[in-house]
């Protein structure tokens, strides 16, 4: 019964998402949906390392930027197809993540977060001064024949919508694999305690790096998508702290350590941030950021497990719960 209901809901959501571009009036709502999917993908990536493995990175914008730059530079300088550029960017981001993850592999909690911010800032400043990739002026992607092969569409945003949706679907499949496989169990053990992980035979260095690399690859894919969608990028639009923070917020508010949490978080936060920016931002008073901040505050205070965590706990309450009440816990 519960399984069947879930299937019906899932089928309805997928169908709705597939026909949505036909229903939405004008390009702005479609743009919001595309940005939502792209941030959801970033969140799904972050969630693998932050939500499951407990590594709170505030530097995912670096990998977003590396992905965006890798494909864009290969395209502008060497005419490499952006789909190939996407793979190169993903691998490059994963290799970079491994290179930085190795020395950071023993950092925990706050220290890891601080290191990740420092890393992303170094990457940003480097790209700002790196002549080869246009330094602060950035890169403009030349117009090409529109179509799937060239990853460029000029008339409607709908093709971008479907590509972003497909990317997100792939990201969710990766996340689901992680959640249900040995790696996912190991990530959660590492999140609980490095000592405990070790006595279960888990090399926490290796598995932390695996989590970081998966997250970096997905972030880079989102970066390439962003570059091909906006057709322009500079360091100050892709490798910036607000993007890194947004990625964390999307996952935390949606529900870290759950497969769909980041998607729910993105579906709430991205439209709010886009709408408040469009409706209130032009007055130059910062009201949009205040409203945005207040909403984040409300969710964190009233639903710290995240919206998805809350929703799934509602679902669980209906299922037969273990009846024996746990005895009050004694402290050693």
């Amino acid at each position: 019964m519960a399984k069947r209901a879930r299937f019906v809901v899932a089928a309805a959501v997928v169908t709705l998402l597939l026909v949505l571009p036909l229903l939405l009036p004008g390009p702005v709502p479609l743009h919001i949906m595309i940005m939502t999917f792209n941030f959801a993908l970033l969140g799904v990536g972050w969630n693998i390392m932050g939500g499951y493995a407990g590594m709170f990175s505030f530097g995912q914008a670096a990998f977003f930027g590396i992905g965006a730059y890798a494909s864009s530079w290969l395209l502008t300088a060497h005419g490499v197809n952006p789909w190939l550029g996407l793979l190169v960017g993903g691998v490059l981001a994963a290799v970079t993540a491994a290179a930085i993850g190795w020395p950071c592999s023993k950092l925990r909690g706050h220290y890891f977060a601080i290191a990740s911010i420092a890393f992303a800032e170094i990457v940003r400043i480097h790209f700002n001064n790196w002549k080869l990739v246009g330094a602060a002026e950035g890169l403009t992607i030349p117009m090409a024949e529109p179509g799937l092969l060239n990853f460029q569409f000029h008339g409607s945003k709908a093709p971008y919508y479907y590509i972003a949706l497909a990317f997100l679907a792939v990201g969710l499949m990766v996340s689901r694999w992680v959640a249900t496989s040995r790696a996912g169990f190991y990530f959660r053990a590492i999140k609980e305690s490095h000592e405990l992980a070790m006595v279960l035979g888990i090399s926490f260095v290796r598995y932390r790096m695996l989590a970081t690399m998966l997250a970096a690859f997905l972030s880079a894919a989102a970066g390439t998508f962003y570059a091909q969608y906006i057709l322009y990028l500079d360091p100050e639009s892709v490798i910036i702290l607000p993007i890194s923070v947004q990625v964390v917020l999307v996952s935390m508010l949606g529900g870290a350590g759950t497969i769909f949490g980041p998607v729910v978080g993105a579906a709430i936060l991205v439209p709010i941030s886009e709408i408040t920016r469009v409706e209130l931002g032009h007055r130059g008073t910062g009201v949009d950021m205040m409203v945005y901040g207040a909403l984040i505050w409300l969710i964190s205070v009233y639903q710290p497990r995240g919206v998805w965590g809350f929703l799934s706990s509602l679902g669980r309450r209906k299922a037969p719960a273990p009846t024996a009440a746990p005895a009050p816990e004694a402290r050693p």
């Binding site: 169990f185 959660r188 053990a189 609980e192 000592e195 405990l196 350590g257 050693p332």
Partner: peptide, 8 residues
Amino acid sequence: IVQVIGDM
């Protein structure tokens, strides 16, 4: 000091 994975 006993260690188990709390949210599993």
